[in-house]
Design a protein around this nucleic acid. Structure first.
Lengths: 315, 315
DNA sequence: CTGAAAGCGCTAACAA
DNA sequence: TTGTTAGCGCTTTCAG
């Protein structure tokens, strides 16, 4: 008797007593079987060790809980095979929908899900040509603004350390960088674009690389903070100073960014909100199957200016 | 036909073809209903935003996956009510077992689970008088060693910033601190013990507090790195230097610890291993119900010496 | 308004 | 070896 209107209050109380006494727990499994609904959503993320994702996960879980859903969580380490496994797992657990972030090269899985009419929301990264709604942060705009900040400070010799270019995020940030360089009519030097993989170590390596060039850049926009931290180490190791010798802008605003010396100028991302929004969108899709609005949701990043950047003439 | 030995290879192949063609996915729900087994474990953690837990979660998820289990995840924000809700959720989802970390004051929930004979492993924090096996890191030993390190450097004026004393972890670290002070026959000053709550802000406040004392300590052992980061800020704000004016030892070895200047001397915890071990223990409990060995698993922390500590006489 | 019965998709036990 | 059937715990439907 699930809250039927025609049951007297008294009876309800009586029954409640019995329930408490026997410690009765409704069996969600049986319920799920007959209702074809598990009130569970899947969350597939690339790497929970990356400080970006715990906040997202928290946003998803908090909002899901508010809307009476629970979440099954899978970590893929950006591994295509594990992405596929995670999706299969979600299917066999019969989750009501999936929030996921796949590597760009794993289109097939998305297509398969589309065929089966699964409810899916893509988060943080959107696979090109996929029809699923995505909740993303405008990476191109963010990179554009970050680079513009350097340009507005008077810099002209600006390098860029990208993320793993297999991932759309990295492409978008590279695109934003290029656009800013183009808009302001600066020289675009291929050798000042170095590919990393979002890890601290790759940031270190890429920066070493840039600093040993004959004409080394005076400013660098780095595709995430973790790599920027690695870059800091490379810079210090070469006996250079930030921002006197080189200005650095990161991306993500992880906790370290405000703590490290000098404070890292970076783009902050609404991570928690991203998770919340994704859960909102997915669950409203699940609950009333008509798609009221299936446009992508694009959240805006914000520039946080700290001490790692300063004007070229300020010296 | 689940891999029965008496089915010919040929038939298997045929069937496999049909499976692939129809895109058949076994319904885990129905299976769970009849087998009374969901191949799912619950993970209830206090705060995924705390850099300690993502690694633990990763360890749990990785090992669970290897052993063919998936994980439902809940964040409780150290809130008693949410802890209860999370447990009820796990019950209604009929998970096969739970890995959890509850606030010390929430004993009733543990007792209720014990009554029902639920498979549970406590992680990181063990509720006193509970019968469930725990996988923990030896906090008392860690705190003892951290404090001893300061003492061996020649320090005698040593303060301690504790975590939230509602939490066993904090009690244990306080205990280890006291034991070291006692063992080496130093003065124990009540006013040099300040309670924090594991947040950066509380570390900042507690440190301010200590530094404004007339007889301020020359060294401080802080119950986690996040608070130590806050303490750094308070110290710098007062125009003091680390370790010249004050030595600092933290606890956790979060990523920031190696990046911040000066590098934070701290206790490193086998976080990933902790998660793995918990999943191991829980799943072996589930799989063969006899408890071969239900002693607590106690992992050892390790001291990482960086630049935030130095001898009193080194000046 | 209350009670009985069917069935969700699977597995295990049993019959052929 | 193969096919049939009961039943896991719930909800929904339909008859009383």
């Amino acid at each position: 008797m699930n809250d039927k209107p025609d049951v007297s209050e008294e009876t309800k109380k009586k029954i409640q007593k019995v329930i408490d006494k026997l410690g009765y727990n409704p069996n969600g499994i049986a319920r799920g079987l007959v209702l074809q609904k598990t009130h569970t959503i899947g969350l597939i993320i690339p790497d929970i060790s990356n400080p970006f994702f715990p906040e997202v996960a928290k946003g998803v879980e908090d909002r899901a809980r508010e809307l009476n859903y629970s979440v099954i969580f899978c970590n893929t380490d950006n591994d295509k095979k594990r992405e596929k496994e995670a999706i299969d797992l979600m299917k066999s657990k019969h989750v009501d929908g999936i929030i996921l972030s796949l590597s760009i090269s794993n289109k097939e899985e998305i297509y398969k899900l589309e065929e089966k009419n699964f409810d899916v929301v893509q988060i943080d990264r959107k696979i090109p040509d996929s029809n699923y709604q995505a909740v993303v942060i405008d990476n191109t705009l963010g990179a554009y603004n970050a680079t513009s900040h350097l340009i507005e400070l008077g810099h002209t010799d600006i390098a860029h350390i990208t993320g793993d270019l297999e991932i759309q995020t990295s492409q978008d940030r590279l695109e934003g960088f290029k656009r800013a360089i183009g808009t302001f009519d600066l020289d675009y030097k291929e050798k000042w674009i170095v590919e990393g993989d979002f890890s601290k170590e790759s940031g270190y390596k890429a920066m070493k690389n840039l600093l040993t060039l004959e004409d080394r850049p005076k400013a660098v926009f780095i595709a995430n903070d973790l790599m920027a931290i690695g870059a800091y180490e490379a810079i210090f190791e070469m006996g250079l100073e930030i921002p006197q010798d080189i200005s650095v802008v990161g991306y993500d605003d992880i906790e370290i960014a405000s703590i490290i010396k000098p404070g890292l100028t970076t783009m902050t991302q609404p991570k928690y909100k991203l998770g919340q929004a994704a859960a909102d969108v997915l669950i409203s899709k699940i609950d009333n199957k008509r798609n009221i609005n299936d446009e992508d949701i694009i959240l805006n990043p914000k520039l946080i200016i700290r001490d790692s950047t300063r004007g070229y003439e300020d010296e």
